[in-house]
Nucleic acid binder design. Structure first.
Lengths: 344, 344
DNA sequence: TTGAAAGCGGTACCAG
DNA sequence: CTGGTACCGCTTTCAA
């Protein structure tokens, strides 16, 4: 006896209602409880094989898909890991890291979600994230303060991990301080006998979190050495580079740390077009160790950056989720190593 | 009279429970209904100012954050727009497009979420997405078939938009066919008098969706012209490029379409290192019109690709969400225009 | 102006 | 082995 579904659902204009487990139960002639047991392969309860088949068939026929919100509401928790979506195009290095991370978390059976809250800042954003009741939140780039962490924890988030340049009170941290990148570059140029060093500061918004620490690193490496640092604001456009190149000789620099390999390529091309000899007249070093640097002539010296493996972070998250009580860990995870080629 | 909260919550080991609207109500000495009215600025109901203040203060004190799942469960719908997270590092062009899109959707008050379902394929993935009951789903790159669309629609998704190379039954589509990119490149090389044309096929997985149509486009442009196409599999590594360059002369090609500007740079460098004159001996053209192409010597010819604006797609989504009944639209949105520089 | 109560879709306990 | 039922947190009539 298959009862006719209660919902009237005339084939008129209204779209057919979304099937619920109750609909499946009705069609299979069983109770909602049974449907739940069958579809979740509940081990504690034994359901007869014929019943199981009827339920599965009914679910299939209706195109039933469970409702995640209802499920996690009842369960009191979800396995969602939330990270804010980057609001600026991201390089291959970091992109690769994110992918690894997502993959590793997926393997640990988490649902990874990048949340695009493009208008929100600070605690506003934290509140928006908290509304989704994620079990863990991973925040790159210093977009979260201690209050934000508290908001999240208060809403049941079991693991909050920041990736910024410095730790945040209450949160676990993968400290990725780009200071070391600049320091490496500065020390290298110094060792090569350079004394008047330019540092490119990208004008693109959203890069300050990286460029400032890198600059600071260079500064620090040159402290008390008689060498001097000159900031070189540079937009990622041919014309901007040409303008700098034109007044290059008046700047009197004998070396430049170009923020990364892409800006290095941009600037190096402009300098070469103006007849500046590299590395004789000016040494150039980039960062990120992209393939493109090896393709330049002279081959570009660079600072190779070692990001942590996605698996490492995924395992940290998993560990903290399982035991949220522990004292926040902080790992310094950004390796920087100078790769000397021909441009310096 | 402020009652003591019911939940015992001893300051022992158990983490403090997440505050609910009931907790706020208790603390403020009102009912849950009133809390809801106040926090949602319900216009239909007038609540006295003192009450509002008490409620807000209580919410503040408890660090109350509403529970999105519960809310949308009750409401019967959400404003979540879901898109699968790319599982391969994405170029600046496409990255920019995604950002614009997210921004535009945010402005229209949607919650944009990139879902990383790294193990799932086809209908599996569609089911996983459907569990979240998004109001709209945007799927790039052909990762969704007609069945998948039906699963989503059946689960209440009001708008399904694909970005792939071809339409999908039942879904709206932004047809981004890279065929035209290849066609433009092929026609250009032909017009420049080239007859034996190589086409780079990247070996990196995940790029087939782009490289195949581009190849097809070249083929089609050369149809019945006496010109011939040679496929050149190429991994994005210096050594792979060097291998191709070494046997270049034996290939007898007078032109190459290098898939995009990055592969073009890689190959061009290898060819130049082997003494192949560009463009005299071999013409090279890339695609994407990246800045780096303009920095090469000779300057790289390229195919400029015009993606639709994020706003356009956002408005399409919004329109369809408001009126899901309409017949699926299909827009051809990928403009391709050859930019002739010096390498061809 | 405020409160009581129903119900969104699932899950899991307890009876039968 | 299966059904009844309470409940997760929130919104929204309906009454008072």
């Amino acid at each position: 006896m298959v009862e006719i579904p209660e919902r009237p659902d005339p084939a008129s204009s209204a779209p057919p209602a979304v099937p619920t487990s109750a609909d499946v139960a009705r069609l299979a002639g069983v109770s909602r409880a049974t449907v739940s047991y069958v579809l979740n392969n509940a081990g504690a309860v034994r359901i007869s094989e014929p019943t199981r088949r009827r339920v599965r068939a009914a679910a299939e026929e209706l195109g039933y898909v469970p409702h995640a919100a209802a499920r996690s509401l009842r369960a009191g928790h979800s396995r969602m890991v939330l990270m804010p979506a980057p609001n600026v195009p991201v390089g291959p290095l970091y992109g690769q890291f994110i992918n690894e991370l997502q993959w590793a978390l997926s393997r640990l059976d988490y649902t990874v979600v990048q949340y695009a809250g493009m208008g929100l800042h600070g605690d506003e954003a934290a509140r928006a994230w908290a509304e989704l009741r994620p079990v863990a939140v991973i925040v790159p780039g210093g977009g979260l303060g201690p209050t934000g962490v508290r908001i999240l924890k208060r809403s049941g988030t079991r693991a909050v991990v920041t990736l910024g340049p410095e730790r945040v009170e209450g949160a676990h941290a993968l400290v990725m301080d780009h200071y070391g990148v600049g320091h490496g570059a500065g020390a290298h140029l110094l060792a090569r006998g350079r004394r008047r060093i330019g540092v490119v500061i990208p004008q693109e918004p959203g890069l300050e979190y990286f460029s400032r620490p890198r600059l600071e690193g260079v500064r620090c490496a040159l402290e008390d050495t008689g060498a001097a640092v000159t900031e070189l604001p540079l937009a990622y456009e041919e014309e901007a580079a040409a303008r700098i190149a034109r007044r290059w000789r008046s700047l009197g620099l004998d070396a430049v740390f170009a923020y990364n390999d892409e800006y290095a390529m941009l600037l190096m091309r402009a300098l070469q077009d103006d007849g500046v000899m590299i590395p004789e007249e000016t040494a150039v070093i980039g960062a990120d160790d992209l393939l493109l640097g090896r393709l330049l002539r002279p081959r570009l010296s660079t600072v190779h950056i070692e990001l942590p493996s996605g698996r490492f972070l995924a395992e940290l998250v998993d560990r903290v989720v399982r035991d949220p009580g522990g004292v926040p860990e902080a790992h310094k995870v950004l390796g920087a190593r100078v790769v000397h080629r021909e441009s310096s």
